[in-house]
Computed example of a mutant assay.
Amino acid sequence: MLFNLRNLLNAATLRKSSKQLVQHFRSGQPTQTNVNLKGRDLLTLQNYTAEEIKYLLWTASDLKQRIKDKGEYLPLLQGKSLAMIFEKRSTRTRLSTETGFALLGGHPCFLTTQDIHLGVNESLTDTAWVLSSLTNAVLARVYKQSDLDLLAKEASIPIVNGLSDSYHPIQILADYLTLQEHYGYLKGLTISWIGDGNNVLNSILMSAAKFGMHLRVATPKGFEPDPNIVKVAEEYSKEYSTELFFTTDPLEAASGTNVLVTDTWISMGQEKEKAERMKAFQGYQITMQMGKQAASDWTFLHCLPRKPEEVDDEVFYSPRSLVFQEAENRKWTIMAVMVSLLTDYSPQLQKPTF
């Protein structure tokens, strides 16, 4: 019994250390772009440098042009499998990941709480070890960020955050790709967040300044983002010389902005707070009237699904709305993430302007 226990502990140490070695050495190997993300986790964009995030967007743009526009077949993930753990329902995250991974020749495996109940019918550590031996990567859409952190610690394969209560990094990659396609650049743009201090906003706070983008945030009193995340964002703002502004006045936040962004006011698990939240967010609906405060070239983003109280139909279905292009780009950006974490692929097309 003691011998078996010692072997298990040694195996755990080997898994952890080998993963750390892969991340340490491969992330430093020179490539065409001097960026190599193979073997990395994607838990939050806080862990990625500006150049690494730009590399992901470059790869997404490259794959979109080669596959969609040029009709090339790129089986870059042939023979690889992906475990998709979903504690929360999803349309875009599930379909973009399943179709994208399959389009690249890989095999996605969808797992709900009916199939795998994290930390209940099997410990997170055991789950991480088993999935590491059966698949090449895990995308997990969960409630607790700590579950993702533990999976990443114990697994020897890349773990990707498909959404947690703290962050939604793969959504923000799609947002940035959409803005880069529309404006032709990102540096110097001003983003205005009008809504709840939630996981989507947290991911913008962890990344916008790295592109030289300014951020103006309006949240009702009591619905501000995590102060620890704000502190990190303030440090980024100083480092990259960008503006970071917080207010409770949506019109003030919208002033002079290029991009108006919002999200649901009531996230999954907050249904009991609906009456309180609907009252607190009065005046936060994005309308053309609010758009008059913005720059002349303003556009609108929403990660969907959208409720009319968050943004009216006039804005949502207008030419200023990029929401459906944004939704499609969830596919190309998650494909870029998987290709970057699982292969040595380098983009073939010219690097976009960021």
Rank of each mutant, 00 (worst) to 15 (best):
S18E: 13
Q293L: 04
H302R: 06
Y185Q: 15
S61N: 15
S27D: 08
L124T: 06
G212N: 09
L37T: 01
E310C: 07
D344R: 07
V261R: 02
G105L: 05
S133T: 13
A152G: 02
L124F: 12
H168M: 11
Q285W: 00
L304G: 03
L205G: 04
G184T: 06
K279T: 08
A128L: 14
G79A: 05
A208L: 09
G119P: 04
G256Q: 10
I157M: 02
L76G: 04
R26V: 11
S133F: 02
M1I: 15
F25W: 13
L244S: 02
S156N: 14
D165T: 07
Y143Q: 14
L111M: 14
K88Q: 11
R15P: 04
T13C: 10
Q325F: 00
V217K: 13
I204C: 08
A253N: 02
Q114V: 02
K54A: 09
Q78A: 15
D249L: 09
R89C: 08
M338K: 03
S340E: 03
S237L: 10
P308M: 11
R320K: 13
L251F: 09
V337N: 05
K88G: 08
G119T: 07
D149F: 00
T262K: 03
V138C: 11
K331P: 00
A218R: 13
N34M: 05
A218D: 02
S156L: 05
L251N: 09
I191A: 13
G222R: 05
E224N: 07
L139W: 03
M84T: 03
A218S: 13
F324E: 09
R26L: 13
I53S: 12
I194S: 07
S133W: 04
